[in-house]
Write a protein that binds this DNA or RNA. Structure first.
Lengths: 341, 341
DNA sequence: AATTGGTTCTGAACCGTTACGGTCACTTCA
DNA sequence: TGAAGTGACCGTAACGGTTCAGAACCAATT
């Protein structure tokens, strides 16, 4: 039976014909993929876990890029890609338990996420992306701290000392407000923690007291969030000369907000982002470009290249500072006095 | 055992504790999802088949919108979404056979696609989207022919009679060239066939000989394709007053090409698209907006609402003509003489 | 004629889970 | 005291494939 479908060479054409003939007559729909998976211990699919609602993956340009890269790796290997529905609000990890996959890719979830814990308990290989190092788990990412540090250095060299920050959510609980230093250090989202650390380090090294810097956090990753956070920061300290956002989406929202308030960018205020999505490029945003597609592809490759079994492996991709038109020296600096406003 | 994990109420806490305890000691990784699926006959996932490489789903804005809607429906139902890798170049339907899913959504594949045939052979419910009617299969779509007809009417009322057309691929074989009338009628992509039919019908009714209209086909759905097709059409007939494209992506490419040639839009030439993606809106394209997200959501709902088992069902969503700034009366019409160029 | 080699075909074991029915101890009520 | 009822627990049979050992068969060699 099995041979008739999958190994035509193992039996005579005559028998094969007869088998298939009667199979059809009996209305046999072909081998059941699940039973096959059970026996062969191969599901032919990899699972993707991400911290947001499933549909979020198709709203955030950076996530889309990551998925495209991951899909590229999957189609090369002829593997399916299963999007695992992990509702961040609920603690329901059943979906992780139910996923019939040969491995998991975990993309940017809080490090205390129960879904992540459930994945790690499953006896399948896992690759994490934008996560802190984990024992015996492959990792793909960038050096968020260094990348943000270099962006900060750029702003510092332009003369900025009084800044405000807008960041994505730092933990699983909602806090659409300013962030305490403790919360910053305890942040469960590795990426955000690292970026803030890079900023803090750079500005502290030129004498800026980090605790005095307003850092506004937003749970939802939307332009509207960026706008409201920017408003909150500007309310707190109207004298800031630069608004640093930890993502382009937030930065685009912030940009809209400051412009709505009649501030000119970059003449009156500098705004920066992070990610390097296309929309940011069109807006001329000063930002850090990271290779999102490559991240996805690398994660997929790592998971599917079971040849090299020397785990854990780590891939750190490089980033690039993008000098757009939204950053300039603050008003009244030496440079401005030399070159005119 | 099973009860200990899945039905804590069926046994005493004491026994449950003991079972889990020894399970952990023996290194038992928890119930195997594949075996569970085999026994319960539920995979907890729906499969998505689309005609392009897997990664294409993340490159085309319309496809992304569809996927977002589908993901929305999936997350509501707590179901996973499995992207099935169906390479359009190869005839390898094994991936369809291997997919452990409770149902399929088939999105815009040629009606003679072997992958589609393989899906229909599987004994699971199926919903097709942007496909012709099929016996016993649910369907979601729009009235492509009517929508394109109304766009054509608009152009006709503006005074256009000499037009060129750029369309997506019409069959599984590559034909980056003009399309014969036979090929148009035999087109295996329902959507493209219907849109061309809508155009032909509208223009024929005002005396335009459809066979004289240059229709350029492109296999790849990219802006570059739109540009090269536009160039080919303009080469053939430089006198056309309108360039009608069957998708926004193609139209944006065509727009770039005509502008590169020094033609002003819409003063010298009218360009239209189809889909209503955001990029088109930003470019002010005259187009037809279709509710891509709703299509995905409707497809998912149809598949997952197993309550109503009165198959087959069909959902036809409505479209909307978007009057952008890329369509105007052709040069030298009465209107132009009245209002100036 | 018996042995060997090779091919084609058959049957049974196994993958790990859940559903189901049966056993057993213990309580309740006549 | 005994019958009936209740609930916890356990054993077993599928689910539908794949795999592999070995049976059966045929042809060629000794």
């Amino acid at each position: 039976m099995s041979n008739a479908y999958n190994r035509p060479d193992q039996l005579s054409p005559e028998l094969r014909r007869r088998v298939l003939e009667t199979a059809r007559r009996l209305g046999y729909p072909g081998p059941d993929p699940v039973a096959r998976s059970l026996r062969t211990r191969k599901a032919g699919a990899v699972g993707l876990l991400l911290t947001e609602n499933l549909s979020y993956a198709f709203r955030d340009p950076a996530a889309i890029g990551f998925l495209e890269g991951l899909a590229l790796a999957c189609e090369d290997a002829g593997t399916g890609l299963l999007l695992v529905p992990a509702n961040p609000e609920r603690e329901d990890v059943a979906a992780v338990h139910r996923a019939g996959v040969d491995g998991f890719v975990v993309y940017s979830v809080p490090d205390d996420d129960p879904h992540l814990a459930a994945v790690l308990e499953r006896p399948v290989p896992t690759v994490v992306c934008d996560q802190p190092d984990l024992d015996n788990v492959d990792r793909v990412g960038i050096d968020d701290q260094a990348a943000m540090h270099s962006l900060a250095q750029h702003l510092i060299s332009l003369g900025h000392r009084r800044i405000g920050v807008v960041c994505m959510r730092l933990a699983r609980d909602r806090n659409d407000d300013f962030v305490t230093p403790e919360r910053q250090q305890a942040a469960h989202f590795h990426v955000q923690r690292a970026r803030l650390a890079g900023l803090a380090q750079a500005f502290a090294s030129v004498g800026v007291e980090w605790v005095t810097v307003p850092v506004a956090e937003r749970f939802d990753h939307t332009m509207a969030s960026g706008a409201s956070a920017a408003a909150q920061v500007l309310e707190r300290d109207p004298e800031i000369t630069a608004l640093i956002c930890t993502s382009d989406i937030l930065a685009l929202g912030a940009l809209a907000e400051v412009q709505k308030r009649g501030l000119r960018v970059p003449a009156d205020i500098t705004v920066t982002g992070f990610d390097g999505i296309r929309e940011a490029e069109q807006a001329g945003l000063t930002t850090v470009r990271q290779p999102v597609l490559e991240k996805g592809r690398a994660a997929g490759k790592l998971l599917l290249d079971s040849a090299e079994r020397t785990r854990p492996r780590a891939v750190t991709l490089s980033t690039e500072l993008v000098l757009g038109s939204t950053a300039a020296p603050p008003r009244g600096t030496a440079e401005e006095r030399w070159f005119g406003p």
